[in-house]
Every structure is written in C-alpha cells, then in structure tokens.
C-alpha cells in the first residue's frame, strides 16, 4: 500500500507542470524514503531528476518499493481539477494497476477523486556522479526564466560563460546578437530574492540549446532560487531546491564544436 498526503497539494501540480514539456511518461519510483523520478526528454538531450522526501509529506506510507508508471499529460489534466489550496492524497495498492488522486478543499467542503491507469514503462536509470563543478551560480529563479525567454527571441543557442566579471548569457541569430551579464551582488545590500552568488574556481564557457533551458525554467514557481552548475565538457546542472520537500534537477548536454 502506498499513501501520501500533502497539505500544500499545489506543489505536486507545480512539479508536473515543470516536467510535462520534457517528459511524456515516466516512472515515479516510490519507497519508504519518498518519491523519485528520473527521465530523459524524447531527444535524449536532457535528464530530469525529481526527489520528494517522505518527510516533506504530512503523511507518507509505502510498504513496498515500486515504480508507478504515469502519463504526465494525463496527470497534468487530472491536476487541473486540483485547486490552489487543496490537500492532495495519492494512493496505490501494491499490486494495483491504477493510482488514485484525492483533492480536498481546505474547509473540507469539496472532495474530488480521480483514478488514473498505470503504465508499464521500460525506463533506463542513470548513475549521476557527484561532480565538483568549476562554477556555480545561484540566482533568482524568476530572473533566470526571464533571461531564457528574452534571449530566445534572438537565437536557439546560448553561450553561458562564467568569468571574473560575472555570468554572461550570449545569443546570436539572423536578427542580431544579445548579451546579458549578471554580476555577483553578495557584497551589496541586495534583498535576498535578487541575490546573485557566483562561486568560480576557473572560467567556464559552454553552449546550450535554449529551448531546453526554457522548459527547465517552468520549475520557477516551485521555489525562489535556482543554481546553475557548470564544468567544461559536462552537462549543465540546473537545480531547483524546494525547501523541506526535495529538489528538481535538470541536466543538459552541451553543444560541442567539432
């Protein structure tokens, strides 16, 4: 028996909104420690890794570890019926072929339940090594969304370079070129939400497809901050930490010159 109840049910809705552009169907691996998901996009260019800790839920019970294969676009449709302040309960039997969603309004005056059929999904799992990244930038999640959306007007590829002057996002396309530089402002009196922290061991300069970054940025409603971790010739890690609940990490393979 699996049962998980979350007062802040909206979090689940936001998680699915942050995944469904990249991943059509995925296994939610449930165990006594929580829920994990690892999935690649259909082009195998990026990898999403979700972690939701059991302690982050108001109630969490999982008698047997198992994968719950779910179509994310169906799940997103079901979650459209969940209101902002609803309490969400997820339930599945050990040998069942469905997952149950229950949405309760805060005042307990409306209760809805939905059942979704589970799918058998043959998914590969990757071992993600602990990487000592050469540059880490932590900034406002909404500002990062803005940068990705704004620069995509000009081109498909962004060069991200972290140097002593800050982190520069550059795009060039048929229309022209654009650069946005964000500087470390930790020494000034910047309010928490707008703080930019740059931790650089050595300069890094890598190219990435903007369309994936734009999809990752859909996770911004989950939390205030995002971290970008870079090292030469390895995937970019874009990490959204959800306080007391878990994290949503995206890995994006770079574009490499011949």
């Amino acid at each position: 028996m699996f049962e998980a109840r979350l007062t802040k049910g909206e979090l689940i809705k936001k998680v699915i909104e942050a995944l469904k552009d990249l991943v059509t169907e995925a296994n939610f691996d449930i165990s006594a420690t929580g829920i994990q998901l690892q999935a690649m996009d259909s082009s195998h260019v990026s990898l999403c890794a979700l972690q939701m800790k059991a302690e982050g839920f108001d109630h969490f019970r999982c008698d047997r570890s198992m994968p719950l294969g779910i179509n994310l676009s169906s799940m997103s449709k079901v979650l459209k019926c969940c209101n902002k302040d609803d309490i969400v309960t997820l339930k599945a039997e050990d040998d069942g072929d469905s997952i149950n969603f229950m949405f309760e309004s805060k005042d307990q005056d409306k209760i809805s339940d939905f059942e979704l059929k589970l799918m058998d999904i043959d998914s590969e799992h990757f071992g993600i090594p602990d990487t000592d990244y050469k540059a880490t930038v932590t900034m406002s999640a909404s500002e990062f969304t803005r940068i990705c959306n704004d620069l995509s007007i000009l081109g498909e590829t962004v060069a991200i370079s972290v140097g002593k002057d800050g982190v520069r996002f550059s795009v060039s396309g048929e229309m022209g070129t654009g650069n946005m530089t964000v500087r470390d402002n930790t020494s000034s009196d910047t309010k928490e939400a707008d703080r930019v922290e740059i931790d650089m061991e050595e300069p890094v300069n890598l190219n990435f497809a903007l369309r994936y970054l734009k999809s990752f940025a859909k996770a911004a409603p989950l939390t205030d901050r995002v971290s970008l971790c870079l090292s030469r010739d390895v995937p970019l890690l874009v990490k959204y930490e959800i306080p007391e609940f878990g994290s949503l990490s995206y890995y994006l393979a770079p574009k490499i010159d011949d």
């Binding site: 993600i128 590829t157 060069a159 890995y251 393979a253 770079p254």
Partner: peptide
C-alpha cells in the same frame, strides 16, 4: 553553433 551531444554520453546506465 556546435553539435548537440546526447545526455547518455555522460552518464552510465545503472
């Protein structure tokens, strides 16, 4: 600008 590399090239399957 640059060739897109696949993500599997970086992570070993478990």
């Amino acid at each position: 600008k640059g060739n897109q590399v696949r993500i599997e090239n970086f992570f070993a399957a478990k």
